[in-house]
């Protein structure tokens, strides 16, 4: 459905997208993650035909982006970043306007589609109002409505939940869930929790390069060479800290303070995924420090994201794709 091969885009000396490759089959929901300036929006703009690539190629629905951009745009729905919309037009008029430009020239068919997207995006209550009078949440939904008015095969959504309150985020998430049955979706977001729940696959991009590509659980699993252990013991905290630091296999160690002060302890990062629970247990027994809490934690996607996107700045090699 979407095939990208060594796609590159430069702005002067800055390489915004640096020879990326990926394939997205039909019906997959892909979350595009990366820090600000990583190249997410540029990649999306390249795929929508807004920006021409400098090198590489991309095919969407079997059409070449360079030679057949018009045909691609017919099958594509796009919600740009910040969702720019004209202020001086009424919602239904705007959807009819976009519908006509999308080739829905038959009035009856267009009216059915407008009615359907107004319902799907819960916009019926604000019909009659101009776009400039709408709240950010409603404007975002109008952006989504115009993107799906022509029932596209591919949807590209650049930060669809940006600036929305939790209830609106939930509504947009439900809308995306309802669309994923029949469409290929590529969405970028900063809300990693959302990716975990919405996407079949995550592509993490940093400094124009793909640094990870896989399902959310795969990505979290791939980072299991770094495991964390939370330990809380009763006793002199200074002594406990030095003893824990001396244990073999302990990497970083940070004192953790809970909000209610009940569960103060230490977060230990092990080296090479080593399980430190037994060593900690034996230490506690030997020193006669009662264990109040001992739990091993999986890295959240947010931490995976941080680990992967900070690799480059540390000068280390990016981890392999999973």
């Amino acid at each position: 459905m979407i095939r990208v091969n060594r796609l590159t885009k430069k702005f002067g000396l800055t390489v915004a997208v640096d020879g990326i490759d990926f394939e997205i089959p039909k019906g997959q929901v892909v979350g595009f993650l990366g820090p600000n300036g990583a190249g997410k929006t540029t990649t999306m703009r390249l795929l929508t035909g807004y920006l021409p690539p400098d090198e590489g190629e991309a095919t969407l629905m079997g059409h070449d982006l360079r030679t057949d951009s018009l045909e691609i745009r017919r099958h594509l729905g796009y919600l740009p970043e910040n969702n720019p919309l004209p202020d001086d037009i009424e919602i239904t008029d705007f959807l009819h306007f976009v519908g006509r430009l999308r080739g829905l020239h038959d009035l009856e068919h267009r009216m059915t589609r407008v009615k359907s997207v107004l319902k799907a995006c819960s916009l019926e209550s604000v019909v009659g109002r101009k776009l400039g009078e709408l709240s950010k949440g409603f404007r975002q939904r109008v952006g989504l409505a115009q993107a799906i008015i022509h029932d596209p095969d591919i949807l590209i959504l650049d930060e669809p939940t940006s600036g929305l309150d939790p209830n609106q985020v939930q509504e947009v998430r439900e809308l995306i869930q309802s669309l994923k049955e029949e469409k290929t979706l590529l969405l970028s977001t900063h809300i990693l929790h959302e990716v975990q729940h919405t996407c079949d696959r995550v592509i993490i991009i940093n400094k124009g390069k793909i640094v990870a590509d896989g399902s959310p659980s795969d990505l979290m699993g791939a980072q299991q060479d770094v495991t964390r252990l939370f330990v809380s013991m009763k006793g002199s905290q200074n002594e406990i800290e030095s003893a824990l630091r001396a244990l073999p296999g302990v990497g970083r160690l940070n004192a953790q303070k809970s909000v209610d002060g009940v569960e103060d302890g230490f977060m230990i990062e092990s080296e090479s995924g080593r399980d430190l629970r037994e060593s900690v247990f034996h230490l506690a027994v030997e020193k006669r420090w009662p264990i109040l809490s001992l739990r091993q934690e999986r890295l959240s996607l947010e931490e995976v994201f941080r680990a992967l996107t900070q690799f480059d700045s540390a000068g280390a090699e990016a981890p392999p794709h999973v």
Partner: peptide, 14 residues
């Protein structure tokens, strides 16, 4: 300036 051109130019228009 307002960004609506990005939307316009990603519609199937020459």
């Amino acid at each position: 300036r307002s960004g609506t051109f990005e939307h316009l130019s990603t519609l199937p228009l020459r």
